[in-house]
Simulated scan of single mutants.
Amino acid sequence: MRLLLVRHAQTPSNVRSLLDTGIPGPGLTELGERQAAALPKALAGEDIDLLYASTLVRTQLTAAPLAAARGLDVLVRDGIRELSAGDLEMEPGDSERGQAYMRTVLAWAAGDTELRMPGGETGAEALARYDAVVAEAAASGAGTVALVSHGAAIRLWAACRAHNLDAAFIAEHRLENTGVVTLEGSPADGWQALTWAGTPLAPAGEPDPTGRMAGQARR
């Protein structure tokens, strides 16, 4: 199966760099609306069979133009919502407390999935809910599936499930609004990330364009 993990378009909380992970969350900025409107053209080369969005409003608004262009229903699933910030909710991401959020996510990506976000979920719990949606999509028999999801959730899941990604990679690579991570594989066989925000990625064990061996720091 081909899997497209799409980060939602820009929100007011993105502009303010706030950890805004609660449901239903904010809508889109004017720029975010333009980003969402551009998705059908950006994904014109993808033959998408199923389209999912999370329970947060911003992913559904991002998915709407693509759904309209392709004649698809948007399947809303809680499992692909953003990683809960717990006690860190609405903290500035660059503050001392806010930085604890990404440190926790990177610890999960490095294998410490029993660690709990302060006042929130563990990495194991976050991965399990995301896995369930991916498994549902795979079981449908669809050839290509797009999941409109969230930056930290996409980075974590990709680092933990793609053979050629790891914690070091996601620490160095953010995913901008409406950025796409493309993977191929299955829940049974695992996944290989093909592109990150349009940049081709090397298979596991081969050097990426920076010279680092893809997947070398895996758990």
Score class of each variant (00 low, 15 high):
residue 14 N to P: 02
residue 14 N to L: 01
residue 57 V to I: 13
residue 41 K to I: 14
residue 65 P to E: 08
residue 20 D to T: 03
residue 30 E to V: 01
residue 34 R to H: 14
residue 50 L to W: 07
residue 22 G to A: 15
residue 34 R to G: 12
residue 36 A to L: 01
residue 25 G to S: 15
residue 38 A to F: 14
residue 19 L to Q: 03
residue 66 L to R: 02
residue 14 N to Q: 05
residue 12 P to E: 03
residue 37 A to E: 07
residue 29 T to R: 00
residue 54 S to N: 07
residue 18 L to Y: 12
residue 20 D to M: 07
residue 23 I to A: 14
residue 37 A to F: 07
residue 78 D to E: 15
residue 22 G to S: 15
residue 80 I to G: 04
residue 24 P to R: 08
residue 50 L to D: 13
residue 36 A to P: 02
residue 62 T to R: 07
residue 63 A to R: 02
residue 60 Q to V: 09
residue 59 T to H: 07
residue 40 P to R: 10
residue 12 P to L: 02
residue 69 A to H: 04
residue 56 L to A: 14
residue 65 P to V: 04
residue 18 L to N: 13
residue 33 E to I: 07
residue 25 G to M: 14
residue 28 L to F: 02
residue 56 L to W: 08
residue 36 A to M: 03
residue 48 I to F: 04
residue 36 A to T: 00
residue 67 A to F: 04
residue 44 A to N: 05
residue 61 L to K: 00
residue 13 S to M: 11
residue 11 T to Y: 02
residue 23 I to F: 15
residue 33 E to G: 11
residue 74 V to Q: 14
residue 19 L to D: 10
residue 39 L to A: 00
residue 17 S to F: 11
residue 79 G to K: 04
residue 74 V to A: 11
residue 70 R to C: 05
residue 31 L to G: 07
residue 45 G to A: 09
residue 47 D to A: 12
residue 73 D to V: 14
residue 17 S to P: 14
residue 25 G to N: 12
residue 28 L to H: 00
residue 73 D to K: 13
residue 46 E to A: 09
residue 28 L to C: 00
residue 26 P to Q: 05
residue 32 G to P: 15
residue 14 N to F: 02
residue 37 A to N: 08
residue 69 A to W: 05
residue 12 P to M: 01
residue 47 D to S: 11
residue 64 A to H: 09
residue 72 L to R: 06
residue 50 L to N: 10
residue 61 L to H: 00
residue 11 T to E: 03
residue 70 R to S: 03
residue 45 G to Q: 09
residue 43 L to V: 12
residue 44 A to M: 10
residue 64 A to V: 08
residue 43 L to N: 11
residue 60 Q to N: 11
residue 50 L to C: 08
residue 39 L to D: 00
residue 79 G to V: 09
residue 24 P to E: 11
residue 53 A to V: 05
residue 67 A to G: 06
residue 62 T to H: 07
residue 60 Q to F: 04
residue 59 T to F: 13
residue 45 G to I: 14
residue 55 T to N: 13
residue 52 Y to W: 06
residue 22 G to K: 13
residue 29 T to H: 04
residue 16 R to A: 01
residue 16 R to C: 01
residue 67 A to K: 01
residue 24 P to Q: 15
residue 49 D to I: 06
residue 28 L to K: 00
residue 73 D to C: 14
residue 53 A to Y: 00
residue 79 G to A: 11
residue 64 A to M: 15
residue 47 D to I: 14
residue 34 R to L: 15
residue 41 K to M: 15
residue 46 E to P: 03
residue 52 Y to C: 06
residue 72 L to T: 05
residue 26 P to R: 03
residue 46 E to Q: 11
residue 11 T to L: 05
residue 66 L to T: 00
residue 29 T to P: 00
residue 18 L to V: 10
residue 13 S to F: 04
residue 60 Q to L: 05
residue 15 V to E: 02
residue 68 A to V: 03
residue 27 G to C: 06
residue 12 P to H: 01
residue 40 P to E: 07
residue 47 D to T: 07
residue 15 V to M: 03
residue 61 L to N: 01
residue 75 L to E: 12
residue 12 P to Q: 02
residue 79 G to T: 07
residue 50 L to I: 12
residue 34 R to V: 08
residue 56 L to K: 11
residue 62 T to G: 06
residue 15 V to Y: 06
residue 17 S to G: 10
residue 54 S to Q: 05
